[in-house]
Simulated assay, not measured.
Amino acid sequence: MHKNDRIFVAGHRGLVGSAIVRKLEVEGYQQIVTRTRKELDLRDKLAVEQFFQREDIDIVFLAAAKVGGIVANRDYPADFLTDNLLIQTNVITSAQQAGVKKLLFLGSTCIYPKLAPQPMKEEDLLTGELESTNEPYAIAKIAGIKMCQAYNQQYGTNYISVMPTNLYGSHDNFDLESSHVLPALMRKCHEAKIKNLPSIEVWGTGKPRREFLYSDDLADACVYLMKTYSGNDIVNIGVGKDISIAALVEEIKKVVGYEGDVVYNTSRPDGTPRKLVDVTKVHSLGWEASTSLDEGLRQAYHWYLENYEAVTN
């Protein structure tokens, strides 16, 4: 990337996109192009084509997606499949037609089989059955990876795909019905604290293990790889270590200052037993995560408190 490149960050208001914009601004990139959903619906093929033809975009970070936790994926599987397929297809095809120099596609580690060996390697893709609770979303993300690879093969494009592990940070979704586990737990602990509740309910057994990556670390990895990496092979982005949900709850309780009990609702699904990615490849490319879970949780909670009204209404 060059400092005078016109860089389109799709999904700039979300957890990942906002972090990428911050990283680019810190590094001195001044021609950052963004559009809200109201200004440009990425599901609208004609609108996306016209945008790319008009804006002379050089670089694309495709961070726009319909995302959510177990409940949202369970209740709206058609939306998760259709919306993400439309967004990806419209942006990738329009970028190629407009002669974009390079594109980075944000996938997800849910692309890997439910019972993949741990830690999950990039070559584990398509080697087994997916986790049923987010299969439509995973299928859409796999299609995005294959689109990038196919366009590279057929058109000689320079499109790369990265697979981040579970993310958290500022601009996260704290809605209890649609959020992922970490922000949901943070909100539950905070509201139990201010209401002086004796306990919080946590879905599942607390036994599943998850890996958590701070969103600003992912942004750093994305910008780094856009500068240094080209190739058809996907790249895992993570921290290389995981934590049980039960232990995560205790970490969040400490950060929030909540001292009540935790009640596990075992009638609710656990999801995948373990999700840890092998980060050997990204380390070999010269990048490692730098934010500890404790520091990341503190920063995320600080942002949550500062934006409490906006994120809870």
Rank of each mutant, 00 (worst) to 15 (best):
A10C: 14
L15S: 11
S18Q: 06
E25C: 02
E25N: 09
E25G: 00
G28C: 04
Q31S: 13
R35T: 01
R43F: 05
D44G: 01
K45T: 11
A47E: 02
F52T: 06
D56N: 14
K66C: 11
V67C: 05
G68Q: 05
L85A: 06
I87Y: 14
I87S: 06
A95H: 11
L104Y: 09
G107D: 10
I111K: 02
L115P: 00
L125T: 10
G128F: 03
E131N: 15
N134V: 01
N134A: 09
P136S: 10
Y137R: 06
I145A: 08
Q153R: 15
V162R: 03
V162I: 15
L167F: 10
L167E: 07
N173Y: 00
N173V: 11
F174D: 09
E177A: 13
V181Y: 15
V181M: 15
L185S: 04
E191N: 10
G204S: 12
P208T: 13
R209W: 07
R210H: 10
L213Y: 09
L218I: 02
C222S: 13
C222P: 08
K227Y: 01
Y229W: 12
G231A: 09
G231I: 05
N232P: 05
N236C: 10
I237W: 03
G257Y: 07
E259R: 13
G260M: 04
G260A: 05
D270T: 08
V277D: 07
T280W: 03
G286D: 04
E295M: 07
G296C: 04
R298D: 07
N307I: 00
N313T: 05
N313W: 01
N313C: 01
